[in-house]
Design a protein around this nucleic acid. Structure first.
Length: 420
DNA sequence: TCTGGGGTCCTAGGACCC
DNA sequence: TCTGGGGTCCTAGGACCC
């Protein structure tokens, strides 16, 4: 059987962890730039706040209801996530981290009672060891486990646990799951299925295979098999290597000058190179893209991207930054209000597989050595202590983060201090 | 003033090859 | 009148996920 363990309102729960006075209070976490709502406590949900709602449109509402507002603190959430994943390993050697707040577990137990007990145990353990509430769905396939989890949350069943191990329980699940609550059905597929009068997961199983194949592609066929209890989604204990690494961010304010955008891009390019080194990869291709704010209909719009091949695979900050700036030279145009710039590292190879270029005069060992020292210093002291001159100091592009909580678990200077 | 960021997979269509 | 067929590679775009 497969269990899906999902942290409830994860970011909101993380903010509460070190601030118990927020228990029982409405609380929201905002996206980068304090843009829109990406996590809500149950109390905030009860007040009708929707996911993705822009913060600036609800300022008055937030104040009126004394809703606590947090900027997103991914350093904190990442660190709490690690604790949750560690704690889950107690219950199974096979744990697949699916996202920052979810994991699949393979369980070698089959009876419904035993599964119920085990789920309760897991839930209590994460609660007492990490302090984060979770919901658990158990079923024969990942897709059904996702559904069981959602069902548990929605119906508030038995402490957020739902076990669908027997055919009759699976049937209950299928009949009570709306199609848009199925893992793999988004708004577009939902529209098409509703037109066919397919409203639940059970309805979906009545559709002929060729129709599924044509309209929902092979991914849809796989999903339907999973609903039938046939395992069709691979198990991945070890995360497969990433195919691309992307750093893209909206600016705190609109930018028009190339110099300002250059500064932002150089910083993102350096972050991208750091990520490449962390996962021991090198990129053969760099993509740069730039875009205006599509929400501002009064502005002229512009979106463009360009690929810059690297003659030799690299994860050297200065090489990645240089390629990124070369790309910006090609796609930048005067006279637009730009909102966002980004860089993507593509065609990744392991850093042990470096192919030397025929006319390659670059000293790879020297570069690797320099980057190692660079990373060590930045890890040891304040993050980003040493930087490249082109990364600049104007910081006009900087994110808005008006309500950022401390990095309680990752920065010794921000550890919670208890008075006596 | 103000609307996230980072991924994956699939398909269709064009270019190119023999 | 009537203009092949099959393969590969690349890209853009669309759908999905959290």
């Amino acid at each position: 059987m497969i269990a899906l363990v999902d942290c409830n309102n994860f970011y909101a729960s993380c903010e509460r962890l070190f601030n118990p006075s927020l228990e029982g209070k409405p609380l929201v976490v905002l996206s980068n730039n304090d843009g829109c709502v990406i996590s809500r406590s149950n109390e905030a949900k009860a007040l009708g706040i929707r996911m993705g709602e822009p913060a600036f449109m609800m300022d008055a509402f937030l104040q009126l209801h004394n809703i606590y507002v947090f900027s997103s603190n991914y350093t904190l959430y990442g660190s709490i996530s690690n604790r949750v994943m560690q704690a889950l390993h107690v219950f199974s050697p096979q744990v697949e981290t699916y996202s920052i707040d979810e994991a699949f577990l393979q369980l070698q137990v089959s009876s419904a009672e035993a599964l119920d007990q085990l789920a309760a145990l897991i839930s209590n353990h994460i609660g007492s060891q990490v302090g984060i509430p979770v919901s658990i769905g158990i079923a024969p396939t990942k897709t059904l486990a996702k559904m069981a989890n959602r069902y548990a949350k929605k119906e508030k069943t038995n402490k957020g646990i739902f076990v669908a191990s027997s055919p009759s329980q699976v049937q209950t699940l299928l009949q009570n799951t709306a199609i848009d609550d199925i893992w793999g059905i988004g708004s577009q597929h939902q529209k098409r299925l509703t037109q066919q009068n397919i409203l639940t997961a059970a309805d979906l199983l009545k559709l002929p295979e060729p129709w599924i194949r044509k309209n929902l592609t092979v991914t849809g066929l796989r999903m339907v098999n999973e609903l039938k209890g046939i395992v069709s989604v691979d198990w991945e204990d070890i995360p497969p290597p990433k195919k691309g690494i992307c750093i893209a961010r909206s600016f705190g304010q609109l930018l028009t000058k190339k110099e300002d955008i250059k500064e932002a891009l150089a910083n993102y390019a350096n972050d991208c190179a750091v990520k490449l080194r962390q996962q021991r990869s090198q990129a053969c291709m760099i993509q740069v893209f730039i875009q205006t704010n599509t929400h501002r209909t009064q502005d002229k719009q512009y979106f463009r991207s360009v690929n810059i091949p690297l003659p030799v695979a690299s994860n050297d900050s200065s090489t990645i930054i240089a390629a990124a700036l070369k790309g910006l030279d090609i796609i930048y145009r005067k006279g637009f209000n730009f909102k966002k710039v980004g860089i993507m590292a593509l065609e990744l190879v392991a850093d042990t597989e470096t192919q030397m270029g025929m006319f390659d005069l670059y000293d790879h060992q020297k570069s690797a050595g320099l980057m190692k020292v660079f990373d060590q210093i930045n890890n040891r002291y304040e993050k980003g202590k040493i930087r490249f001159a082109v990364q600049g100091y104007s910081k006009k592009w900087k994110l808005r983060q008006h309500n950022l909580s401390p990095c309680y678990t990752t920065d010794i200077r921000q550890v919670l201090c208890i008075k006596n």
